[in-house]
Design a protein around this nucleic acid. Structure first.
Lengths: 300, 300
DNA sequence: TCGACTTATACTCAATATGAGCATAAATGG
DNA sequence: CCATTTATGCTCATATTGAGTATAAGTCGA
């Protein structure tokens, strides 16, 4: 009796191509890669790592457990099958010419406030949510839910946009019946590709976690090439978090924390003045790996 | 074939008595309460909640998943039995006259830097770690591990104490063979009660998570009585985090964030000038529940 | 009753951190 | 040569933070 078949590992494998965060998918972008826990795996983390590295051929940097959930439907139908899913966030560096990679913001256009597409998406969501709230019976409930919409989507400038609330925003849209996973009609749905099962929800969890991590931990560098300019680093930070940063202040903070050191090389193809290339000070930082990192992320 | 027997839920149920954080235990303080996932549970979270509330009779406030791990020994011996453990942090308010509650710092004396016991414990750890590192073969490894000791235990004032690194500190002591769980001789072990299996490790995870949470989320109030003075609140924050806060600055931040409102009552038994009583502004805050909370935690 | 001690609460002040802008340098392409 | 682009150095006002002073209002013991 092999009982470990019931444990499923789901990976949100993330990389950055150019400036754009991407996620590894299967089934034409409809699912996240997943696999069973095998008895040869020494631990869950090792299981994910081994399996993803075999699948992509790339070494994985940061691996982090996200969340474990019971698949409710499967519990009740007491047939054999997957019962517990454990999701992981994994970061890798490059992936030239591989298939299965999709942009984060194909699934969550509204999370990319930097882009025009994101802003129009947000404007549409605002109208749809307004309509959803208006259709509620109780006035008190109407007020409560509208407050929730306002604080999650930063409607009306009363509250600032919080880039870490990816999951909460998705859940609100789900409750409002504005995503395909909630079974709504396509014309009523918000823009953004849907996924099978609750995989888009898991992706939202991963995005939120990564956005939180890059603020305090030097994990961005797991996604960067060996050498990079400060603007490249800034662009990656911006596209991960979905918000703009002030260029000079960003440089100031990166430099004064001594997160990076010059390689001595110069990047010529900047389109303007050539830029110095930097590398992550992994060696020096490893010693004090528990000292926090501060990355400034502000609104435009 | 009931397959759900293999999933174990482990709860770190935390409350505060007086000013002291406590954890619910069984087996004379040697284990954390745990139970199997049942098919009647609608979700994992609901399972933990239902089961803990039945066990203690108290309503639970905040519940949060901590970590999922595979019990390695059980995987290899392919007998039936528990295989996956999912741990949770749960907060509750009061527990007058119940058994099983133990102080956090019975298990982690060194995490309570406020107390004299914590400081002597830390001084001893410093000596033991120094001895451990000195016995290493390679000089490079010696340097690397000593750096790790220094940054985790804030040895020599080169780096500040980080109260959120509870788990990392425990893991270092485990690797150094200084805790009973690592199979060391009692006279070589660091002070602090041990637990069965990896339960002390799970407790460390829970403490770290709660210390991180109370900084940015108003979860402290789940542990406070209905009405409290600002000093009581401060004392609870201090004993959860294990570090001192500056009284006036603490008040300033709490007040200007409008986390609390006056009840109008006065607490007379302060030992000094009577203090105003406050309650948590849950209603007002619920609307903007995603706005961050800032609690100042500094070194003495 | 007085005085030492405790806690509560208000306010000040200096050091930093942060957000935003200005200015200059060094490349490109017409 | 000039407009444009990016890089990089510097300033400045404001907000936040850490730490201290001052005063108020109780308790307790001699």
């Amino acid at each position: 009796m092999t009982t470990h078949m019931m444990i499923e590992l789901i990976a949100v494998l993330t990389a950055v191509r150019g400036d754009i965060p991407q996620v590894m998918t299967i089934d034409h972008g409809r699912q996240l890669p997943s696999g069973p826990l095998e008895s040869t795996h020494r631990s869950l983390q090792a299981g994910v790592r081994a399996w993803v590295e075999r699948q992509t051929g790339h070494p994985i940097g940061h691996v982090e457990q996200l969340y474990t959930f019971a698949d409710h439907d499967r519990i009740l139908s007491s047939t054999q099958g997957r019962m517990i899913a454990i999701s992981y966030l994994a970061l890798t560096r490059s992936h030239a010419g591989e298939t299965g990679w999709r942009d984060w913001y194909d699934y969550f256009p509204w999370e990319n406030c930097k882009s025009d597409e994101g802003r129009t998406s947000l404007a549409l969501i605002e109208r749809l949510l307004c309509h959803w709230v208006a259709g509620m019976g109780h006035a008190a409930e109407r007020v409560r839910q509208w407050q929730r919409c306002v604080s999650l989507f930063a409607i009306g400038d009363m509250v600032a946009w919080n880039d870490e609330l990816v999951l909460q925003r998705y859940e609100l849209l789900y409750e409002a019946g504005l995503v395909a996973e909630a079974g709504c009609a396509p014309d009523r749905a918000v823009p953004g590709q849907s996924m099978h099962h609750d995989h888009r929800r898991i992706l939202a969890t991963a995005m939120a976690r990564l956005r939180a991590r890059i603020r305090y931990r030097p994990v961005v560098f797991e996604l960067m090439p060996e050498a990079f300019t400060l603007l490249q680093l800034q662009r990656v930070m911006e596209s991960l978090s979905g918000v703009h940063v002030h260029k000079q202040n960003f440089r100031r903070l990166i430099m004064q924390q001594q997160l990076v050191e010059e390689t001595g090389e110069i990047e010529e193809r900047t389109g303007g003045r050539p830029a110095r290339l930097f590398r992550f000070c992994g060696e020096v930082r490893q010693a004090r790996q528990f000292v926090g990192t501060k990355i400034p992320l502000v609104q435009p």
